[in-house]
Computed example of a mutant assay.
Amino acid sequence: MLSQAQLQEVPNVFAQARASLQAIAGHDFSPCFELDARCKADKNLLAEFIKDPEGIAKREVGYTPPAGFHMHFVDKDNNYFPSEGDPIKQLTSGEHGKIWTRIEVRTAAGPGCLVNCGWCS
């Protein structure tokens, strides 16, 4: 059963989730497929992407994530780069009972992917 504090947080969490869904509704994610392929083919580019995902996306393929989103590279084992709370840990640990949701758009050319992440807590 949810605590009173958790119940009070539900509207805020879903308001942010709705905003993320609205932001992706008409967004063109197609450049992310090319960037994913380039990052997998060039370890130096991938290292640059991990340090500055949005900057490299803009420089390499002219891509900007939707408002309120940020980016990651996720390897075939679901490890996030740059690191951010692991969704599996989030799923299994529940982070002390905190209410959470995760909105992602994953684009890939083969194993691993690029992720546009809109709401991660």
Rank of each mutant, 00 (worst) to 15 (best):
M1Q: 00
L2C: 00
L7C: 01
Q8R: 14
Q8A: 14
E9V: 01
V10H: 12
V10C: 09
P11L: 10
P11G: 13
N12L: 10
F14S: 08
F14W: 13
R18C: 03
A19S: 14
A19R: 09
S20Q: 13
Q22E: 08
Q22P: 00
A23N: 05
G26L: 09
H27Q: 07
H27N: 04
H27I: 07
D28I: 00
F29D: 06
F29M: 09
S30K: 11
S30E: 10
S30C: 07
P31M: 15
C32D: 04
C32K: 08
F33V: 10
F33M: 10
F33I: 07
E34R: 07
L35K: 13
D36N: 11
C39L: 15
C39Y: 05
K40W: 00
A41P: 12
A41G: 10
D42T: 11
D42K: 09
D42Q: 12
K43P: 11
K43D: 15
N44Q: 14
L45A: 07
E48P: 02
F49K: 14
P53N: 11
P53Q: 04
E54C: 10
E54I: 15
G55D: 04
G55M: 07
A57S: 14
G62R: 13
P66S: 10
A67P: 14
F69S: 02
H70Y: 11
H70K: 04
H70T: 14
M71E: 08
H72R: 15
H72L: 09
F73Q: 15
V74H: 07
D75S: 13
K76M: 05
K76W: 04
K76G: 11
D77L: 13
N78W: 12
N79A: 06
N79K: 04
Y80M: 15
F81A: 06
F81R: 06
P82R: 03
P82W: 01
P82N: 05
P82I: 04
E84S: 08
K89V: 11
Q90V: 12
Q90G: 09
Q90N: 10
Q90D: 13
L91G: 08
T92Q: 08
T92Y: 03
S93T: 13
H96G: 06
G97P: 02
G97W: 03
G97E: 06
K98H: 10
K98I: 03
I99L: 02
W100K: 08
T101Q: 13
R102F: 03
R102H: 06
I103V: 11
I103P: 02
I103L: 10
I103Y: 02
E104G: 05
V105P: 01
R106C: 08
G110K: 05
G110I: 00
G110R: 04
P111F: 04
P111R: 03
P111M: 04
G112A: 07
C113P: 00
C113W: 02
N116R: 01
N116P: 01
C117D: 02
G118P: 00
W119L: 10
S121A: 05
